[in-house]
Design a protein around this nucleic acid. Sequence first.
DNA 1: AGGATCGGTTATTTCAAAGGAACCGAGGAA
DNA 2: TTCCTCGGTTCCTTTGAAATAACCGATCCT
Lengths: 122, 122
Amino acid sequence: MARAYNVLAPTCPSSRLLHRIGARWTIFILAVLSDGPARFSVLRESIPGITSKVLTESLRSLERDGLIERAEIDTVPDGAEYAMAPLGWSPWGPLNGGREWAETHVPDIEAAQARADVGDVA
Amino acid sequence: MARAYNVLAPTCPSSRLLHRIGARWTIFILAVLSDGPARFSVLRESIPGITSKVLTESLRSLERDGLIERAEIDTVPDGAEYAMAPLGWSPWGPLNGGREWAETHVPDIEAAQARADVGDVA
DNA sequence: AGGATCGGTTATTTCAAAGGAACCGAGGAA
DNA sequence: TTCCTCGGTTCCTTTGAAATAACCGATCCT
């Protein structure tokens, strides 16, 4: 069964996808924005553990990739709002597939790890 | 619409999945093994750019997670063979979904990047 | 004895992503 | 005038994954 792309090629789209989606905070940001547009401060408060710096970097990167959109809004002190771009919705299909896989199999992986850590000396 | 898990929790299975599958070489190794068991040296030659050390680490890690299995075979100079574990096949469902997404949308992302890099000064 | 092969190990270095903490300018509000 | 908030920026350190390269013991071939 031939593959449309060679998965081993450095330009492999799947590889690029994983690099983008696999980035530490991408999924969290997209998760928040999937509930609607949000401001910088809302994002920062919604995502426990993220710092301004990393949030800024992640948002710029996602914007650059066309997954989200940034709009300045004319409010009291400055104001910026981030929203899903059309492209930003698209990964949720595969991602939900991935989520189902994860919910099903992560316990298996943890069991395997536990077995390995105890030492398979049985 | 409630989610079964809170995606923002540190223990989120999807997050763990992305960490595992997103690791630099995981997808390549699983891709090779999906065509059948392979020896260390075959893997190393099949995956351009990987080194013995990184291959060893990746294989150990995948084995620990129960995605692949290692067997020593009694051949001329040593001999080890790696094969998919049952758990190793399971991510291909979501991954193929991801691949389809990637093949469809990576060009869009690249276009977005190109636009961003030129400068959206339009 | 001198290679070569297999399946690694060990030690050192590089690199990008991330963390931490301090700081900033504009524009109110007190 | 001083303070606060918003949406960041700047600088420095830490971390972890990966790159690089040399080496190893066992076994077989010549």
